[in-house]
Amino acid sequence: MKAVELVHVDQKFPNMSYKALDDVSLKIEQGEFVTILGSSGCGKTTLIKMINRLYQPDKGEIRLFDEEISKKDPVQLRRKIGYVIQQIGLFPHMTVYENIATIPRILKWDKTKIEEKVQEMLHLVGLEPKEYRNRYPAQLSGGQQQRIGLARALICDPDIMLLDEPFGAIDAINREKLQNELKSIHSKSKKTYLFVTHDIREAFKLGTRVIVMNRGKILQYDTPEEIRQNPADGFVSDLIQTMEDAPGTGNEEL
């Protein structure tokens, strides 16, 4: 069974010379960790937002676990999909605790269970619960806010996780830690992850498969080794070149 399937999906926005998604077809097996690379404006966020129905495709079909999503109730659908939004989007009027506990509270989890889970999530993203749980987002650094966003998305253990540059504002050391943490959460959970990043090293390290996009098209979708050995075209090989040209810095940005 495919966890995610896009069939000839098109998306055009007004005043654009190219389509944000241009006849995109894609199959993702359950349990994959798919990373998405591509230059700014190539449609990565658009692709992600198709999956939780924040955008409605102009053309084509999207299926999750063999079910066409346009026929499902979007609210129920989204509760099974974790989403770390590129702009973080925490609730400024709620504490860290309330932010993370939002969906569990809506789902009426038991209070002690929520308490335990929030603690666990905070530990997971490397923030001491005692110190951070009662803070407001305005009292956190950008990187800390991003980590709360991650905790908020992970708490319900969703079937599909959509992560849009979740570590963009995090320093190299903490980023490394979080990458490892996320990788281990993923391998324990057997859930399906889609992870957008500009960091090629991050994409190749985390991804069981990597998508390379340009101007609304998927240029290549394959395992990291395969992409490295057989880049589909000039764009992809240039991309890999940038990583191999600068070994060790770990921060190649597209």
Binding site: N52, V75, Q76, I85
Partner: peptide, 18 residues
């Protein structure tokens, strides 16, 4: 209203009224 916050709320599966 901050668009990203509203979008995050929508994406989490909060209904319109909520």
């Amino acid at each position: 209203l901050p668009a990203a916050t509203i979008e995050a709320a929508t994406a989490m599966g909060m209904g319109k009224a909520r």
